[in-house]
Design a binder for these strands. Structure first.
Lengths: 145, 145
DNA sequence: AGCCCTGCTGCGAAAATTCGCAACAAATAG
DNA sequence: CTATTTGTTGCGAATTTTCGCAGCAGGGCT
């Protein structure tokens, strides 16, 4: 599951950036921690092996890796941000405002919608990740009761 | 432009909540400040006439009014949250990740997409507001250069 | 009127996030 | 090989956002 990060490293270097131990550690942490990892969880994870690595660096590197399209931002229901590895085939989320659950959505469901936005508004929707907020089956049912 | 808030007040009272001076002031501030108002701008605005009103209350009231579907959360490109009045006819945003500009989208463009999500995933996407992130015409063009 | 009950707020502390700056380290030029 | 440049980090402070708790206040009840 932990993708080979050497490919990513090369990509970064080719763009003129450096692959520092800190960035390596943080990227590894995100790979290991999985689906939607918070800055705090990354910090906790990384801090064990690198106690001097600061929180500020965690935030900066997460932001940086997102700009480089290696990670994607995930909006949680409470407005906080999480991150995850940007796979080659992007996927999207349905976020339940009531129970905070995440439902994964294949990229295909967005394809036609993206095309429409592109032609009608000349706006290219970010392929990497989109979050929709709403209410899942369970919460709709229990709300009705 | 500042919608008559008495209707909103009645709605709140009917649900068993109170319309306090603080809530009134904050709601008025959002109405006046317009499109995508930040907690800080609300605080600044309100603080002039009510110096004792605390920041915590601003955050709590904005959150509260969002739960009551009187306001909607707007995700900005940097991940921060803003708020705006939830009109009867919702609209959505295309947020440019490069220049932070907001483009408004009529609700109609989402209708069929919502229906599809509903039938395929039994997930009801929040009608009030959706943000899409991506890149606008101008930034696409200048990036190509 | 007086008494509960509960909702709301203010306060101050905590937690989360960002910022500025000085020091460091890697890449590059001379 | 040294000097310069530029990217990156750590630190601590500032800013933003949340939290817990004690106290106030409005609405319902008698």
């Amino acid at each position: 599951m932990p993708h080979n990060t050497t490919e990513i490293n090369q990509r970064l270097r080719k763009s003129g950036y450096r692959v520092t131990p800190q960035r390596q550690l943080i990227l590894d942490a995100v790979c290991q921690l999985g689906e939607h990892v918070t800055p705090e969880s990354v910090y906790d994870h990384v801090h064990r092996t690198a106690p001097t690595l600061s929180r500020a660096t965690v935030y900066r590197v997460l932001h940086f890796l997102t700009e480089q399209r290696i990670l994607t931002m995930v909006h949680m229901a409470d407005g906080r941000l999480a991150y995850e590895l940007a796979g080659p085939e992007p996927h999207h989320h349905l976020v339940c405002r009531t129970c905070d659950s995440l439902l994964e959505l294949p990229h295909s469901v967005l394809r036609s919608f993206r095309r429409a936005m592109d032609s009608q508004y000349d706006f290219e929707i970010d392929v990497s990740h989109v979050s929709f907020f709403g209410h899942c089956t369970d919460c709709r049912n229990s709300a009705g009761a």
